[in-house]
């Protein structure tokens, strides 16, 4: 080895330009998507056939065709858009408030020992209260209308975001933080140039969890004295005995929840291209 070492040239390294690695082919993706719909589609078709051939009435569990008809009816009267839009605006309003507060307080407690000792115990105590338990109080304080609903959603979003951000900050690798120390970054520069970029992936996960909880809490909020929104359609469908309306609202919830999560994920993806993980951007 030692004889070879002197004549050993720097290895000629591939001169490829920075090409993003591991992009899956479009065909493989659509094949996998198809695989995912096999089960729900199959079950729907089976139920459709069972009801059509008269083995079941489908009164309590209507077949897909009736649910679709109900969706079309709701859409054509404009009710579907109206209720969806109201629910969506409640979720987004609550999400915005909860996320901003969660990130801000998470960063403060995650970067300052003093603030952490001061604030974190209170947040942990508040977190152990099931958030729905606040509803009566919020209604007393803020009334029955929008403010109490949006606040409840914001509370639901706040905790996962706060917890995700502050715990991610505290588990930043010491070795990474030392790079900041060796280049003598100020405290603020360390937060901005080392800590915040380090926790970006965890923050996106926390925000997506928060958004999911926002959708959960909007249903709770709309169960309580709402006269509009998808949650109202649920209650209304139950009181009038219209399972098709309930299922139509549930389907809409599913589509909206998935869509907002996908939008959030794709907004974050360009900032996470540097990540070196098994599953590329979701």
């Amino acid at each position: 080895m030692s004889a070879a070492s002197q004549s050993f040239e720097a290895p000629a390294e591939a001169r490829t330009s920075a090409a993003p690695a591991g992009r899956r082919s479009g065909r493989a993706v659509s094949a996998r998507l198809l695989l995912g719909v096999v089960l729900p589609l199959g079950l729907g078709l089976v139920w459709e056939a069972v009801v059509a051939s008269g083995f079941a009435s489908g009164r309590l569990m209507p077949p897909p065709s009736r649910v679709i008809a109900e969706l079309v009816r709701l859409a054509s009267t404009g009710a579907l858009w109206e209720h969806s839009l109201i629910t969506l605006s409640r979720v987004l309003g609550g999400f915005a408030g909860g996320a901003v507060a969660g990130i801000a307080l998470g960063v403060l407690t995650g970067t300052s020992r003093l603030l952490r000792d001061l604030l974190d115990p209170s947040f942990q105590a508040l977190r152990s209260i099931p958030s729905i338990a606040w509803v009566p109080l919020f209604i007393l304080w803020l009334g029955i209308f929008e403010a109490s609903k949006v606040t409840l959603i914001a509370v639901g979003v706040f905790f996962p975001v706060y917890l995700g951000v502050s715990s991610a900050l505290m588990s930043v690798d010491r070795r990474t933080a030392e790079v900041g120390r060796i280049f003598r970054l100020s405290r603020l520069a360390t937060v901005r140039r080392i800590l915040l970029p380090s926790i970006l992936p965890a923050t996106v996960v926390a925000l997506r969890t928060g958004l999911g909880l926002g959708w959960m809490f909007v249903v709770a909020a709309e169960f309580m004295g709402a006269s509009s929104g998808l949650g109202y359609l649920l209650v209304d469908g139950q009181q009038l005995g219209k399972p098709t309306q309930i299922l139509a609202a549930i389907l809409t919830f599913a589509v909206l929840g998935k869509a907002t999560d996908a939008i959030l994920a794709s907004l974050a993806a360009p900032f996470l291209r540097w990540q070196d993980s098994v599953g590329e951007a979701p």
């Binding site: 990474t176 030392e178 120390r181 060796i182 003598r184 080392i194 970029p197 540097w274 990540q275 070196d276």
Partner: peptide
């Protein structure tokens, strides 16, 4: 740490972002 002393660690410790 001072500017006149630089350090290379055992691992590269590049900032991945």
């Amino acid at each position: 740490p001072v500017a006149r002393i630089g350090m290379v660690f055992q691992e590269p410790r590049l900032l991945p972002w």
